[in-house]
Design a protein around this nucleic acid. Structure first.
Lengths: 155, 155
DNA sequence: CTAGGTGCAAATGCTTTGCATGCCC
DNA sequence: GGGCATGCAAAGCATTTGCACCTAG
């Protein structure tokens, strides 16, 4: 618990410094949203975040949620993913190691994994193509064991 | 030129077999769309495809374009990418080696590259997490040399 | 013949925007 | 106190859907 509180304090400071540096305002809304995100443990959608803030009687508008998510993405406290066609998925990123996703095309379940070799590929691609690469997203798509078992039953 | 014609004939056969197998109809519209896609050399958006078909006086509706793109994606003659937030990007995939993308976050330019090590990572992730992985998408984001040069000039 | 496909336009749903009000610096 | 931020509702925009008509099998 102490560790979580500590993390929240740290990210608030980071966000605060970022806002200052860009001469943006430190509004209560922005910090409420940041707090809500870092008290979560899952990936989430903008709309769900908005609903949960409403439930907690934190009054912010959808517009502010989207605006703040953008800011947080820019200062790398939040990562944004566009997996399927519909809503974007967000997740906190501070103190959370870089990882990638394996997604089940049947049940849409998302599992995280990590492979250090990707870093090498990233460095090489950057050098080769003369890009200053800052980040990547990698998704593997397939069928999870549960759905695979169900499929075999149906045949 | 002969090679291109040949490719078009081949993919038509593949699509035809796919439709047959799933008891779907072989309509003129579906083949017109397939033909247009394989006569292109670039990545494209659904809307652009629709506009270009209109220009060539191939009368199909947007609905049919989207429907057919879905079919072609399912039978793996087309790959669909969701890079940014907005429109999905499509590209033909037959006879076109698996590759990934490096995207400039400034000018949005997309460059292709390929690294065989990714296949190994894919295999490993699948084994580790008990997924039957069918495909992946990997994007690197960064700043291209052109934009980087511009940036330095402005400072 | 008939179920699936098409075209059209309207609907959907996520996200953004315009504008009046509020409040941080 | 000046201007950026917010809230609200309306607009945008890519994509999907409903429905009447059409056509491949």
């Amino acid at each position: 618990m102490a560790a979580v509180t500590e993390t929240i304090e740290t990210v608030k400071k980071i966000f605060s410094a970022y806002l200052e540096q860009r001469s943006l305002r430190k509004t209560a809304e922005r910090f409420s949203i940041l707090e809500e995100i870092y008290s979560r443990h899952d990936q989430f959608e903008a709309e769900q975040l908005y609903i949960d803030l409403m439930k907690k009687e934190v009054n912010v508008s959808r517009a502010t949620v989207y605006n703040t998510l953008d800011l947080l993405t820019t200062c790398e406290l939040v990562r944004k993913h566009q997996f399927g066609r519909s809503q974007a998925q967000y997740e906190k990123s501070y103190g959370y190691k870089q990882h990638d996703h394996v997604i089940c095309i049947e049940c849409k379940k998302v599992v995280e994994f990590c492979d250090p070799r990707l870093q090498q590929i990233q460095n090489m691609a950057g050098e080769l193509l003369n890009f200053e690469i800052s980040h990547h997203t990698l998704q593997f798509y397939g069928i999870c064991s549960t759905c695979n078992a169900k499929k075999k039953l149906n045949n």
